[in-house]
């Protein structure tokens, strides 16, 4: 049985991804590919996305000491950098950047997991299966963005003292010690929307579903949607910025602000950032 299967589908099994036409409305493979566009010019660095993420995804609050020690579980984090060339006032060169799992198409973390706990879903997400995870932490080692967070402590027993456990989101699990976790683009919302759409014989509409961080952003700096649908906002933004999901080196106009982080490592991230425009003379 298996050998027949191998021989019949050999070319499918030998297909490398991402390939053009992998995500297609005509459904050769999948009619969804979730992607994000993040405009740093609009972002104020207010941390609302982080807070929303904590609430939506049952992230434990670890406390000051453990935060400093590097145990923070922020799936989306605001990174701050100071420009050292700003002389006396480095703060004036501050820049910041919300960082979450980039849902890479060619994700370095997926290949190295010994048990296959992290996989690529059909709609282009980099999934994390907590039940399968044995905690070898190899994925974190191989993640260039280091956006994977390991449960070093048994948070369920300490992070939500009664009655706080009542505010946990019932749509997803609370992770115990010894498993890796990371941003999922709020997959529980996506799956729900996809099921709802399927019962109505249609595709998920643009804007019908967004992750918690997008929902909470007061300035609408993050755009989320199905990049396969050319009419969706996120697809238009990627197109306007001339960023191509399938390319590891963009041939874009130098005036364009769009870029993907660490593209030269060829992970093909699904998140496009747009540079902040700074008036240096003012």
């Amino acid at each position: 049985m298996s050998i027949t299967n191998l021989l019949n589908n050999w070319s499918f099994y030998r297909q490398k991804r991402p390939f053009r036409g992998q995500y297609d409305l005509n459904k050769q493979y999948s009619e969804y590919k979730w992607a994000m566009a993040l405009d740093l010019d609009i972002c104020t660095g207010c941390n609302a996305c982080t807070t929303a993420c904590y609430a939506e995804n049952n992230l434990p609050v670890v406390g000051k000491e453990r935060y400093q020690h590097g145990y923070a579980m922020h799936w989306i984090r605001i990174e701050r950098y100071w420009d050292e060339n700003m002389g006396e006032f480095p703060e004036s060169g501050t820049s910041f950047l919300p960082m979450m799992c980039q849902q890479c198409e060619e994700a370095p973390c997926e290949t190295v997991c010994p048990v296959g706990a992290t996989n690529h879903t059909n709609d282009g997400l980099n999934s994390q299966n907590y039940h399968r995870c044995i905690g070898s932490r190899y994925c974190s080692v191989n993640c260039p963005y280091k956006v994977r967070y390991f449960n070093f402590w048994n948070y369920p027993s300490t992070a939500w003292p009664s009655p706080l456990q009542d505010q946990l989101n019932p749509d997803l699990t609370v992770r115990t010690k010894g498993v890796m976790e990371k941003c999922t683009f709020c997959v529980q919302r996506l799956n729900e929307a996809k099921s709802r759409a399927r019962t109505e014989y249609r595709l998920v509409k643009d804007g019908e579903v967004v992750p918690a961080c997008v929902q909470a952003c007061p300035t609408n700096a993050i755009t989320f949607g199905n990049i396969v649908d050319p009419k969706s906002k996120v697809a238009k933004m990627w197109k306007n910025q001339q960023v191509d999901l399938y390319k590891d080196e963009q041939e874009k106009d130098s005036s364009m602000r769009g870029y993907r982080i660490l593209e030269d490592l060829r992970p093909f991230p699904s998140v496009m950032y747009m540079e902040r425009v700074r008036d240096m003379e003012a």
């Binding site: 298996s2 299967n5 191998l6 589908n9 050999w10 099994y13 994700a107 690529h120 299966n129 093909f268």
Partner: peptide, 22 residues
């Protein structure tokens, strides 16, 4: 080889890291 390849082909969570399934 057949064992490894066929178990990769029957693994329900197939594509990983953009590499071929086998």
């Amino acid at each position: 080889f057949l064992f490894v390849a066929s178990s990769q082909a029957t693994f329900l969570l197939q594509p990983k890291g953009g590499k071929a399934v086998i």
